[in-house]
Design a protein around this nucleic acid. Structure first.
Lengths: 220, 220
DNA sequence: CAATTTTGTTAGATTAATCTAACTTTATAC
DNA sequence: GTATAAAGTTAGATTAATCTAACAAAATTG
């Protein structure tokens, strides 16, 4: 059984993997906020446990078992976030830090009860997909708002970043998942967009914000 | 901040303390399932952190800060048990193992929300008192069923032991907190009691069971 | 393509939590 | 009140997770 530390490395590997499933030691060190030698020795441990494939000076890759273990921790994290928001009244900006701890609890029934009470949700409060009990993830195909064009109508579906600061920014602008947004114009100079939604008739969203918003296009 | 391991030692000290607040190294070793040298070194660590008073060859004692820290972990444990039973549909025999993990989460708001959602309970599903936010415990004064006499009517209020096996035994006999019990006779030979409650007209409870049941006397 | 920079590895130390073996102090018991 | 038993301590080792310093390989770049 993976230790909490090992689970955190597996999660990081899962999230950092490029299309080929590879992660560099330095990327992992950076993500985990530890030194490269620490990652080097941890990767050897993960390999001994059958969770990664690794050869000196090569990038690391999760094995299928490593992927499944990682996905199940991510499942517990996202179910927890959903439970905190939908059943305990927390704001979407408050739940990450708590879920980082709860995700490591070893008690399958605990998370199965959450899942049931929530009605088997498929996405978390930030729009990220919740892996199923087998660790499979249903891929979603949203587009990034910054690739959309003036005239289109879209619905906010997910975020590529869920930092507290960004979530508080979205709260301050009354933006939440499901909000229907109409794109009025796109500034070629700085890629900012003028949009409207709900009561907001004319809101400007910077490129920095637009590139973090994933949407479904529903019109034009 | 206490590590999970330290929190577990503080809890054990809190629970093992005799009326003078003292705990022997061997008792603690036994409770924690570790060797005496391990306890010896851990007790020195706890002392460095100001949680215990300790002198070579003397029993250990929690300081007021140690007591408060322990009580707050116990608070989190008991609130969690109550939440699992009352809000998530678990049986009282299922919650201990999960609460042992959840109690170590460092997120005051998480437990405050549980407390609110539960309506600020003062006892857990096994009748044990829930310490308040300051770590204070409201002392309850129940009597042990084995000290009761034939003819008395009592209400089951708490348990002195909450092992899964004992809880499953109580389930099998339809006994739960709040059940009103009438004592018909007490066998002087083996201290067993013949009692009635609910639909059960004639149930025999062994001494081993009676000594684990705490009751409020309500009649005769 | 040689020089430099970046990335990765090895070696060795540290801290927390644990162990066993050996020794010491305190308690128990004739 | 000494002998034995029980309880407690010390010393030294182990494992997991981390670090820094020094070195090696790979990538970048003039």
């Amino acid at each position: 059984m993976a230790s909490q530390t090992e689970e955190n490395y597996l999660k990081a590997l899962f999230n950092l993997a490029n299309p080929a499933g590879e992660v560099n030691i330095s990327e992992l060190a950076n993500q985990m906020n530890v030194s490269m030698p620490t990652v080097n020795s941890m990767v050897k441990t993960l390999q001994k446990n059958g969770w990664v494939i690794y050869q000196k000076y090569k990038p690391v890759q999760l094995t299928p078992e490593g992927q499944k273990t990682a996905a199940l921790v991510i499942r517990q994290h996202r179910l927890t976030e959903m439970f905190l928001v939908n059943k305990m009244g927390f704001g979407w900006e408050e739940v990450h830090a708590i879920a980082e701890q709860v995700e490591h609890i070893h008690a399958p029934k605990f998370f199965e009860r959450m899942d049931e009470l929530l009605g088997f949700p498929t996405i978390d409060p930030h729009g990220s997909p919740i892996p199923d009990k087998m660790g499979r993830i249903k891929e979603t195909h949203y587009v990034c708002l910054d690739t959309c064009e003036a005239g289109q109508t879209v619905v906010l579906a997910a975020l590529t970043n869920s930092s507290t600061e960004f979530l508080e920014f979205l709260n301050s602008r009354n933006l939440s998942l499901g909000t229907q947004i109409t794109i009025h114009s796109k500034e070629t100079y700085d890629q900012s967009m003028v949009v409207s939604y709900l009561q907001n008739e004319r809101e400007t969203l910077s490129e920095k914000v637009c590139e973090k918003l994933l949407v479904r296009i529903i019109g034009e």
